[in-house]
């Protein structure tokens, strides 16, 4: 049983999600890690260090779902599992790979129960399916946030493979969010803000608190829609799925679709003026009051306590 695992990378660096996916599937068999895209030499070197990786395959080319899916499908023959994280790239690409191979994929896996049995959430995480996959090959996407990262220290060989697949799609522009905060999907602490912040300017309060705690920044869809936060900060059913040790939710009601993204959080703190808000009911610790008063006080208190990361 062997695994072809496709790495996630961004701006020439391996994404933290990949080490977690490697760990998630390490019991399924020896892993060949495929790095596909542009500017990937450093990515391949980093990937070669992950424990459990037998070899790293490198396919250089402009990124495009069609071309990448063709490359992956062409490589799939000897493998039993074809796997990537359930990030936006894996979500875009893996169902295409699966259909090309006439396979039904199992996506957003949060638990690997055995070689052919998996758990995946449905209905925004309000139910969990136990799926068994009797097909000859398995196409999986894995929710990185649900797993721990594989260790480093490996030195797997790197092999460059031919990639001459052309694509009809052309990248025109990439609009990135400039931020030095940690990766949201794998962060240890996340501070999230809702539409109650009232403006992009006020949303900086959230950013300030996040910075003090070395935390990633999250937002609700309502806050993103209102233009207070960029779309890649959205947490929930249609945003990112997070599983930090600590989630601090500020001015967030806790709609079903938002809760879908935070079920993996170990501890939840809520700051809300409404004691009846669903998120307050769910939180381990809640403070009822006006966020505009509480955040400055909290910043000062954290300073007093000497907390900074």
């Amino acid at each position: 049983m062997s695994v072809l695992l496709i790495a996630d990378h961004d701006l020439g660096a391996l994404s933290p999600a990949t080490a977690r996916v490697v760990h998630a599937v390490s019991e399924l068999g020896p892993i060949d890690l495929l790095v596909i895209g542009e500017d990937i030499d450093a990515v391949a070197a980093e990937a070669a260090g992950l424990a459990g990786v037998t070899k790293v395959l490198v396919a250089k080319g402009a990124p495009s779902s069609e071309a990448d899916a063709s490359v992956i499908a062409a490589l799939a023959e000897p493998y039993h599992y074809i796997v990537q994280s359930a990030g936006s790239v894996g979500k875009d690409r893996m169902p295409r790979v699966a259909a090309k191979l006439d396979l039904m994929p199992v996506t957003d896996v949060v638990r690997v129960l055995g070689p052919t049995r998996f758990e995946r959430p449905i209905y925004a995480g309000n139910a969990v399916q136990t799926v068994s996959d009797g097909q000859a090959k398995h196409v999986l996407t894995i929710r990185a946030s649900a797993f721990r990262a594989a260790a480093g220290g490996n030195d797997a060989p790197i092999e460059v493979i031919e990639n001459s697949v052309a694509s009809a799609a052309r990248m025109i522009a990439s609009h990135r969010t400039e931020s030095d905060s940690p990766d949201l999907a794998t962060a240890q602490i996340v501070v999230g803000g809702g539409v109650a912040l009232g403006s992009a300017e006020n949303f900086r309060l959230i950013e300030q608190l996040a910075k003090k705690l070395g935390a990633a920044i999250g937002a609700t869809r309502a806050a993103v829609d209102a233009g207070y936060a960029p779309n890649d900060w959205q947490v929930g059913q249609t945003g990112k799925i997070i599983a930090p040790d600590l989630y601090i939710a500020i001015g967030i009601s806790g709609a079903l679709q938002h809760l879908a993204g935070i079920q993996g959080a170990k501890r939840i703190v809520a700051i809300n003026s409404d004691a009846e808000a669903p998120l307050v009911k769910l939180a381990d610790v809640a403070l009822i009051g006006d966020l505009f008063e509480i955040i400055p006080q909290l910043l000062a208190e954290l300073d007093k306590a000497g907390v900074s990361r």
Binding site: R117, D133, Q297, E301, L302
Partner: peptide, 27 residues
């Protein structure tokens, strides 16, 4: 192609508590 063995509710979270001040929360 797949068999859905079962569908279960997600794990429930244990109820939490409310604190009275920003300093308690900071602690």
């Amino acid at each position: 192609r797949l068999t859905i063995e079962k569908v279960s509710p997600p794990a429930e979270r244990v109820a939490g508590r409310t604190v009275g001040s920003a300093s308690e929360l900071a602690a």
